[in-house]
Amino acid sequence: MNDKIVEVNELTRNFGEFAAVDNITFEVTKGEIFGFLGANGAGKTTAMRILCGLLAPSSGTATVCGYDVASQSEQIKLNIGYMSQKFSLFNDLSVWDNISFYAGIYRMSTAQIKQAGHQILQELELGKYKHRLVSSLPLGWKQKLAFAIAIIHKPQLVFLDEPTGGVDPITRRAFWDMIYRAAAENITVFVTTHYLDEAEYCDRISIMVKGKIGAIGTPQELKEQFRVQSIYDVILALARGEEQ
């Protein structure tokens, strides 16, 4: 049985003359936490949008959960969760409205929704705020809720696009606990981030530089490969290499 949940082969996406994603190849194994790093504009978001079925590739192939991104995007959408860089909950709906709306979209039955929803409220200690509007919650709570909702249907794979941007360190720590719990439930996590300490939490990371994959491997492997002490130095080394 194939244990690769994401397989990307020579994937390219052009916007006019500009290649946002330039002939990349990599794989993600089932159950791992895969960190997707890179400077702003390095092509992370474009690659992620292709994998989610939001953008068609210009050339190359990619499969997600065994489905082809170009032709089977609807099947992919049923099997993944997604939490975007921009805030993805409806601010003008209550906590419970958001839960039941998203759960409903993923074809969960009313009984399932009720059960899963109450579990979320309990885990996040949001019971009291069930009928509060999401806009009245602090940012950290919103992000945790958005994540919980993104995996409410137990997808095989969840994409997280800078999920902890602007969140305080304590809440970030709690957020990563949630990610580990999800991984323990056999949900593969595909996460982009700018926080280098978070990169260290990942099982494997890849670093994109100008549309290409500059380096890929476990954090330990990368540090050894570049003979440096931290991921920060890895990125610096990559950037210098680019300049020369």
Partner: peptide, 14 residues
Amino acid sequence: EIGTIEQMNVSPIK
């Protein structure tokens, strides 16, 4: 503008 439309696009909603 808010970005919720993107969330809809990656969901199984046609």
